[in-house]
Design a protein around this nucleic acid. Sequence first.
DNA 1: AGTTTCGGCGCC
DNA 2: AAAGGGCGCCGAAACT
Length: 567
Amino acid sequence: MTDRWALAPAEDGGVEIAPLGPDGLPAGPVRREADLAGAVRGRPEVARWVWRSTNEVYPRLLATGVRVERCYDIEDAETLLLGHEGRYGEPRSAAAALARLRGGPVPPDPPQRAAEPGSQSSLFEPQAVHVPLADLVEVYADQQRRHDATAHPERMRLLTAAESAGMLVAAEMNRAGLPWSAEVHRRVLHELLGERYAGGGEPRRLAELADEVSAAFGRRVRPDLPADVIKAFAQAGIKIRSTRRWEIESLDHPAVKPLVEYKKLYRIRVAHGWSWLQDWVRDGRFRPEFLAGGTVTGRWVTNGGGGLQIPKVIRRAVVADPGWRLVVADADQMEPRVLAAISRDPGLMEVAGRETDLYQSVSDRAFSGDRAQAKLAVLGAVYGQTSGDGLKNLAALRRRFPRAVAYVDEAARAGEEGRLVRTWLGRTCPPAVGAADDATEEAGIPILDTEEEPAGDSGPQEWVPGYASSNARARGRFARNFVVQGSAADWALLLLAALRQACAGMAAELVFFQHDEVIVHCPEEEAEAVVTAIREAAELAGRLTFGETPVRFPFTTAVVECYADAK
DNA sequence: AGTTTCGGCGCC
DNA sequence: AAAGGGCGCCGAAACT
């Protein structure tokens, strides 16, 4: 058996490797070699490399031009398995897993380091506890048995494999970087914010807007200080709770217009202004360290640079290299399609079986053609809306798509009651996240709120929050969203893995991923092949993740030179 | 003076 | 009138 090999960098700079048998234990002697990259490059027949941490090994391989097809990240799998076993919060390091196996004292996980601008990578984890290969494979073999003990072993295997693949993609994207034109970025900043004055003051346009705000109030007001703004409105006879835009916008006062404009531009300057450009863009690339599985729902995060929050106006700075293109692909109505697949609601699956606008189809069936209402209702069901029009629309949704709504209702109930909630592939929601622990409830004493609950007016089938504390309701909303957002993340991982494989023979590179959107940077002549690859990868991911369903996962794709032109 | 929390808003 | 989920980021405010 040469299909799976374990690998562990040794402390002296060399590497230990061993072929693995079907039980996950070594099928041959552990070998030592001096050169990590050479050991991998010299064994192209290996189908999957098993290692402690992708972020420990793979950046080093990529630095020498070595890619691997598949891997298995033991510490990532440990996290997922612990979660599935209801043991969230236990240390997830390989050293900890080994200690649990052998009954020794379990070391706590080392603290995470924050990213620093321009640092090569914060993910080499130099402080991680070294685990020799012979011990590491024991952990791996045990994990294989723990997969078998899960509710759906084949799905759990897919999940750990998919997330490991995601970590390969993330490492490759971190190396590639997102093509970024500092020149265009500066031009956009200048157009929006005006010139910068020497001495570090505000740029011209912001200074002008601040003056307009002050003039409207008749005294000097700092629009970037919420306390100052609240006081100024109070003196003008207007009481506001906060200075959030939605609260300010409806006010009748001459300061509102410049204030709202100021806040918009201030945000650009602070989050994606000149200093951001200085810190995060080097040699025509923005490198926001992508971290696969950085959230409990399985969504990715970026560490540094706000890589998943690039404002639309700033996307003009994302420009392909000369002769190259950006293939920008955005999944159409991903969340309701995922809900259709996981709930197996016949009506919603039928609607999601078309590639046309899903919200329009839903509205045709349940909302007399009002697409906006249909979209609000669907998103309200997914996010757990508890008031307003969304609640009324939810009743209409429930009548037409009962199984879909029941699915998220059941997740919410499970979350409220502290039961485990899982995505389709088995990623497990931690109990009591997103809300402060309620010590009394944790002690098992139920709490009856005295506050009024919304009256359920949609018949006996409807699930009403009932007597639950606001903490429990928050957990319910979280769990409700978790099953959809998390299952979507499951699917997205399979999509990335399939797309990565399809691009393996091309010059095309994955350079960006944002929940339901990918960007591939490729030579112009490869663009059409990439578009096809994305479409095929999406359908393959749908089948692999959810099994055979009628649900389709269409993408809107655009071949552009500039990201901003994709929308 | 250094560290943590808050307010507000960007993205999905 | 206005409580729907997940994140990251920055400066100011609050804290030690």
